[in-house]
Every structure is written in C-alpha cells, then in structure tokens.
Design a binder for these strands. Sequence first.
DNA 1: CGCAAATGTTAGCACTTCTTACATGAAGTC
DNA 2: GACTTCATGTAAGAAGTGCTAACATTTGCG
Lengths: 214, 214
Amino acid sequence: MSDQTRDPQSHPGVPPKAAYHHGDLPAQLIAAVRDLVELHGPDGFSVAEAARRAGVSSAAPYKHFKDRPEILRGVVSEAMDRLRVAMQTGAAAHPHGSLEAVAAVGRAYVDFARAEPGVFRLVFGLTEGHQNAPDLLAKGEGCFGVVVAAAAACMRLPPDDPDVQSRAYMLWSCVHGHSFLTIDMKHKVASAGIDDWTYLMAISHAVLEYPLRA
Amino acid sequence: MSDQTRDPQSHPGVPPKAAYHHGDLPAQLIAAVRDLVELHGPDGFSVAEAARRAGVSSAAPYKHFKDRPEILRGVVSEAMDRLRVAMQTGAAAHPHGSLEAVAAVGRAYVDFARAEPGVFRLVFGLTEGHQNAPDLLAKGEGCFGVVVAAAAACMRLPPDDPDVQSRAYMLWSCVHGHSFLTIDMKHKVASAGIDDWTYLMAISHAVLEYPLRA
DNA sequence: CGCAAATGTTAGCACTTCTTACATGAAGTC
DNA sequence: GACTTCATGTAAGAAGTGCTAACATTTGCG
C-alpha cells in the first residue's frame, strides 16, 4: 500500500502534492464545475465528471456538499461575488455621479456575461427552485445595490428614493436583457449594429434623464 | 389477446380510444414536456417521465424524436410560434404606429414569460449548443420582426432603416430583461414598484424618441 | 389478401445521483 | 510514543436516466 499508487485513474497533469487528503477539495470542485459549465452549458455538468477532474472518487464531493444543487449554488455564490466586485470597480473608474460611471457598471455586467456565458446563465437560471437560498438572495441584492448607488449618485438623490429605485431597476433590466441577447446571438450581427458602450450610454441617458410619468 | 388490456400501466383517466397505436404521440409528448418543464424547470425534465405521462413506454419517444434535445427543440419551436402570434395580436389591438402598439408587443412578451416561465426560460436558455437549428433561428427572427415592424411604424421609417433596427433591438433587450427579472424575482416586490404597462410605455417612449447619438 | 413500414414493446448497456459501509490520514490526549 | 477521534477519502450498490437493439403489432398500400 504505497501512498503513490493512490489514484488509479488520476489525470497525469495533477501535481503529486496531496496524497490521500486533498488540499482544498471544495474550491477545486467548484473550479472544475465552473469549467464544465462553461464547456457544456449549465445543465451539461455532472458531479461525477467534476470529481474526476479534481482527481477524487465520485463520492468524495458529497463529503463537502449535500447534493448536486448545493454545488451549483456554490458556483453561483462565488460568481456573484466576482460580478459585484467587477461592477464596483467599473464604477470606481469614472467620476462619482457621472453617467459614465453608470454605464461602466453596465459594461462590467455585459463583460461578465460575455466572458463566462455559462456561469452567467447559471446564475440567472438557477433562481427556479432555489428561492430559499438566503445568501444568494442577499448577494443579488448586493449587486442591485451597486446599480442603485450609481444611479442615485448620478441623479443626486438618496438611494432609497422611489424614483431612483425605479430607474435603477429599468437600467438593470435593460442591461440584463442586452447581456442575455449578446451571449445568445453571438452568431448573428451583434446587437443590430450598436456596440456595448454606445448602447449603455444611450440607455443610461434615456432612462435616467427622461421623465418617467409621462 | 383482448384489445382492452393493452396497457398494463396506463393512467386510468386516459380515454380508451387508441389501442396499440397512439393517436398523436408527438403532440402529446411535447405537451407533457411542456407541463414538466413548467413544473420542475427546464433541466428537471426526463424523457422517461414524459413518456410515462403520455402512457407509453420509455422507448416510444425515440420513434418520433432523435434524442432528448430534439424533443426540447420541438417544445421551443411550438412556444416561439405562440409567442409571435401573441405579440402580433397585442400590436393589432392598438392603432397602427402608436406608442401603445409598441408597448403592447412588449406586454405580450412579458405576459408570456409570466404565464410560462419554465418554457420561456427554456426558449432562451436553449440557444447554447443549438445554434445549428435553422428553424429556431428563423422563428427568432420572426419574433424580432414584430418588434421592428411596430417600431418602424411608430417612427414612420422603413423597417430596414438602421436607426429603426438599433432602437428595436434596444426595446427588445429591455423587455427581455424585464421579463427575466420578473419571473426570477416573483418573491420580491416586483420591479421595484412599477407595473408592467408603466414600465413598457416609459421604455418605449424613452428609446424611440430619445436621440441615440448624443 | 399479403407484405412493408410505422409505431409500439421489452431487455439491456452505460452512465448518472446519492447512500452505506469501510479505510486512511491528521490532530489531540494521556 | 500509543490511543482515540474525526474529517475526509474509497469502493460497492440501489434507483433512475438516455438511448439502442431486437421483437411485436397495427396500419396502409399493392
């Protein structure tokens, strides 16, 4: 029983660091799942294949995650963290309260969708049946909060103003739809000819400065 | 060999019309799949369960559909037909060229998403890996064409005008995003307090009448 | 009628999720 | 150091899935 022949089917590329106990299996698992989701789509992922990629048996994941949905939720949670950070850094790259800052938040959103379409789809396709996950709910609120903050600064109103909330929601929905259509229609001429920044600036301008109650 | 004991596991509610050969199994299958998708989400559907619901063996579907994705594609195709019809009738209920007609197209879209969130998610989540289905592509173009037509009439420009195309795309993306967020956030206060019609009229107004190249 | 095609069935393979029982290594205690 | 304890791995297996192969029945057409 030498500790070198521990893994009869491991990929040869795996560094022979951890012998029996894996260094950080949960993190490696959600990384593997992220790759798989990006490769085969949100539904084309299997716990077994993720375990295979991590070099462990197909039962090992269940020591760290209750079931398959919980693994997915882990991926989503991590992705939402990254999305929120990206949106914040996008806004911070422009003057506080500027329209550009609002558009930059949207661009971070679209960029995320374009860079990780599978994960993006997973994040917003997982709400079906997972409404009971309070942490995901909270992270979603956090992301929306970034939009609200940028919109409020631009409108010089407090973030809890109802008009700010409404317009932030409208902005979010437009960018959300644009992101989905972008990754869905990558074969077609993207966005009927307008590039991201033009789209985002136009939408931000129109939504934030147009009188809502006509 | 009486023809009454034909089906050892049929549901008792099925009328004893078809004996061995099913009346119209493909249609009954996609109806069953539609129900299942609505019940358990786009990925929580199995060919076996659909066959069970249709009262046939688990191998019968493969006489009509090549594989599981093809069944899904059938559901999506049928759904896109209904969506396009709904959008057209929505527009026809208002004066040609009016802003209300544009908003009504959007409302049909949102209503569809709200009525069949599972199918709606399936329609726009299936693009991953199914870009090669030319009929679905064409039906998607048909739906977008309804938006373009309404926008063109409202702007009094020909439908192939680039500005019409751009603004129609923006309209579509906004309504698309609003639809997704609506079905995702049905637990929360919907849409930050604005109802569908207000949202749609405001967006249509802002997108169609605001100068794009600021 | 008689045969071919269409449409159903059962049996079975490879694969998946997830559970149960067992093995191993690491950490703490005396 | 020896001994227990616990977290984390494995192997084996039950139940379900997609899909195929081989067989059965009904329908339609000459």
